[in-house]
């Protein structure tokens, strides 16, 4: 099966190895992985800031870069949810209508692709310790991802999954919100991390590196004994 990678801008710049771990998992499952090196960003940052014209220009490029009949897989519920649910607003009544429709049909968040398209949950991964899963808002509410990542993690050898309190509550990242309203963002992050630590977890795992980047910053600053991990990094562990 042919798969096109969509590596969101901040994954590209900050967490390239997560991208490669996703490739590793997909190739293990027999996918032929392709990557269009022209890709940049889906346009969400500008859209969320209200700059819809700027967002549309970048989204237009995205539509062209991903003009394909292959599946498109991304390590982010937030970016996937944005393309799926908001491109309609940007390209309403436009010539790109059909391309957008096709894009929405082919684009999957990574764990969703594993569980819903490939129907795989056991990747043969091993990671020793206790993990708790953070429901990233984009994955949970924009894509409806809830059980998939949990069943994937439940098959990781050596990993015990424990639910934390308020696992569905936002971590406080929220894009520009994290810097425009830094104290609120920190208050939310602090409560998320406290809940994760209280669950007894060694690992705080999620589908979205944007949440994890913010939480990891808080964890490192306060020298807490818990490690953030993207689910692709977990699934690529131990083999």
């Amino acid at each position: 099966m042919n798969v096109q990678l969509f590596i969101p801008c901040f994954v590209d710049q900050l967490f390239p190895e997560t991208g490669f771990n996703m490739v590793k998992v997909l190739e293990k499952l027999g996918c032929t992985v392709n990557y269009n090196p022209n890709q940049t960003c889906c346009g969400q940052p500008a859209f969320n800031a209200g700059y819809w014209d700027e967002a549309r220009s970048v989204a237009n490029k995205f539509v062209k870069d991903f003009h394909t009949v292959d599946y498109i897989v991304a390590p982010s519920g937030s970016c996937t949810g944005f393309v799926r649910n908001y491109y309609g607003k940007l390209f309403d009544n436009s010539a790109a209508h059909n391309d957008v429709k096709m894009l929405r049909k082919h684009l999957y968040e990574f764990t969703e692709f594993l569980t819903d398209v490939l129907h795989v949950t056991d990747l043969g991964a091993t990671l020793n310790g206790v993990a708790t899963y953070h429901d990233a808002c984009g994955a949970l509410r924009e894509c409806g991802i809830k059980d998939g990542p949990r069943s994937l993690l439940s098959k990781v050898k050596g990993l015990e999954l424990k639910e934390m309190n308020d696992c569905e509550v936002c971590c406080g990242f929220g894009g520009t919100f994290a810097v425009k309203f830094e104290p609120i963002s920190i208050g939310m992050g602090e409560q998320k991390v406290n809940n994760a630590v209280a669950s007894g977890a060694d690992y705080l795992i999620s589908t979205d590196l944007s949440c994890l980047m913010h939480l990891d910053g808080y964890i490192r600053k306060h020298e807490l004994n818990i490690k953030t991990m993207h689910i692709a990094d977990v699934l690529a562990s131990g083999w």
């Binding site: 710049q13 900050l14 991208g19 920190i186 602090e190 990891d216 600053k221």
Partner: peptide, 16 residues
């Protein structure tokens, strides 16, 4: 803007 309560994220030396 990122504040005193979080360490900054780190750019990888090379992008994906």
């Amino acid at each position: 803007a990122w504040g005193d309560d979080r360490e900054l994220p780190v750019f990888a030396s090379k992008s994906f």
